[in-house]
């Protein structure tokens, strides 16, 4: 990915994230979070992680943000009354964050840098069974991202996938139980 495009997506992502924190209206926060996730998905696609970029858009910007906006509307929080900010928590919080950022810059300036390695897709086709869709796509010089993830998901990561299914079931039941009208 060329450097200007990297900075374009980075600026979209970081300004969206800053707007989530700074805007007073929760609906505006949710909208700027969508912008932030679109920028993040752009960065993912720039690193050849097409599937991760797509699920970032579909799951975060699609499903999770709809849930957030639904709850904001349901609780009718648009009347964000004028609140007097207390100085001590703000100073303490900013102190933690500034210390974290200084640490981060210190660590990154001392770690060895690495350039993005070029992908030689036709050469990688040799490590897959000839004739399969993955090998065909690699020989045609296109990265079969979804095929690779799908194959890995249903072979190597089959048990975690099943556990994830149970987790989603438990979450669904938990949500139904939590939002039931409590009768005592």
């Amino acid at each position: 990915m060329p450097l200007p495009i990297f900075w374009l997506f980075t600026v979209i992502m970081l300004f969206g994230a800053a707007a989530v924190v700074l805007l007073r209206n929760p609906v505006a926060s949710a909208m700027s979070m969508v912008a932030s996730f679109v920028g993040l998905a752009g960065l993912f696609v720039g690193m050849n992680a097409y599937f991760a970029g797509i699920i970032q858009i579909l799951v975060y910007a699609g499903a999770i943000m709809v849930l957030f906006i639904f709850i904001i509307m349901l609780l009718d929080l648009n009347t964000d009354k004028k609140r007097t900010p207390k100085m001590a928590p703000i100073l303490g919080g900013l102190g933690i964050v500034i210390a974290f950022t200084i640490q981060l810059i210190g660590v990154i300036s001392t770690t060895p840098d690495k350039a993005m390695p070029a992908l030689d897709l036709p050469a990688s086709a040799a490590s897959f069974t000839p004739g399969t869709q993955i090998a065909k796509n690699l020989s045609a010089n296109s990265l079969p991202d979804v095929h690779l993830i799908g194959q890995s998901l249903f072979t190597e990561y089959n048990l975690p996938l099943q556990i994830l299914g149970v987790l989603l079931l438990v979450a669904t039941i938990g949500v139904v139980t939590l939002s039931k009208k409590q009768s005592n």
Binding site: M13, L14, A17, A18, V20, V21, S36, L40, P89, I90, G92, G93, L94, I96, V97, F100, T101, L104, I108
Partner: peptide, 13 residues
Amino acid sequence: GLLFAIGLTGVVL
């Protein structure tokens, strides 16, 4: 790291 720091700011503030 900067994205994480912005998120941390929001959680704290």
